[in-house]
Design a protein around this nucleic acid. Sequence first.
RNA 1: GUGGGUGUAGCUCAAUUGGUCAGAGUGCCGGGUUGUGGCCCCGGAGGCUGAGGGUUCAAGUCCCUUCACUCACCCCA
Length: 420
Amino acid sequence: MDKITAIKGIKDILPSDTPVWREVELAARKTFERFGFCEIRVPIMEKTVLFQRSIGETTDIVEKEMYTFRDRDDELLTLRPEATASVIRAFIEHNLSASDPITKLYTIGPMFRRERPQKGRFRQFHQIDVEVFGDDKPASDAEVIFMLILFLNTLGLNELSLEINSLGCKSCRPQFSKAVVDFLKGSENALCPDCQRRIYTNPLRVFDCKVESCGSVISGAPQILNYLCADCDAHFSAVKSFLTDLNLTFAINPKMVRGLDYYTKTAFEVKSGALGAQNSLAGGGRYDGLVSFLGGPEVPGIGFGIGMERLIACLPPSSGTGCQTDVFIAALGDQAQKVGFRLTNELRRSGISSSMDYSGKSLKSQMKRADKLNSAFTLIIGDKEIEENRAELRNMNTKQQQSLPLDQIHGALMNIIKER
RNA sequence: GUGGGUGUAGCUCAAUUGGUCAGAGUGCCGGGUUGUGGCCCCGGAGGCUGAGGGUUCAAGUCCCUUCACUCACCCCA
């Protein structure tokens, strides 16, 4: 029989990895909730139009990376490639702005993009996603960025680089785009074929092309920061000064444009050197026109996404404790097996984690198993002990051992374990 | 979609120019030693060397095809 494997680019998270994931998720919840964020859980499937509208028809994500399929009633559905669209959809659909003018949400879960997998890039990957609705003040931008950095620091990540930029708004960005197009047309021949095409499809993308010649062309191109309108310019200055107030070091990267069409004003990205080519660990920005563009009220928004696989790849290896067992019951002999079976399940009913091995193997291998389960205590019951109406309880760390009368075992164990 | 690299026991890897090359460590199972497990000692199971074809007296080792994994481009978290 051929064995059935997982889908390309879609990975299992094995028991050995699972503690780190939980630790990261827990840290995220704790940090975000300290900032007043609440969790929202949105579906992993949406109508395709939602993503087409929000992410942008000409983006790579929508053009060639989405898992889209036709439902049985012919409706086009797609597995979400990012979370923002869904969160906004839910925000609008349930009219969340009506009960609170400012809504702060986070969500954690899998995203899907059909790309060629490589280091730090998978077809199913996980994001921690944060969105703020209803606050267009620069302090909000700075707060969100601060929260992101704080969260990463909490996990022990300090060697990070924060880059920010402003992408302008609907009044100043078009002028900038036009200036860029005009400029690029002037030196079209020096660009790589991809970029020559981009001039007409998505000119700003030329900025993050990695081809050397394109880089040198674009280095002389107009810069968005020189085209910002008064409002955007003031906003950006205020964000920078708030970040400085919070002691955050950042670099201004005027070439950072972000791959989703909806961003306006502040855009930011956190990179790590430890990641290889896919070095962007988190990214986000403001999207002031998006909620209304998706049919909602005129509500500004800002948010970011963190790539969990990439984040975990940067983490120092140590942390993360495996599963713990309070007591392991090693039973030797048929009578002992019966007693042990009843006892281990009684303990579980009492809220104590307990395990035993039903195979009847040697004490040696049962002790080995106790080690694997990280048990704090091992209770040894043999048929001989049963005749003497006792069992031996061994503390796995101190090796200390005590004899317990059989009929008092349950109560005694409860006390001992509670004391720990 | 395009390119490079790699595919040998569950895991990590060996195997001189194609010629006892199918191995080691670790893990697993059993046994010994031990104050009833951890250290140490002995033994055992496990591989159509990713798959298919070809060259050769001889192929993990060379060639072709295919698949998988991986890294990079593209793009993004």
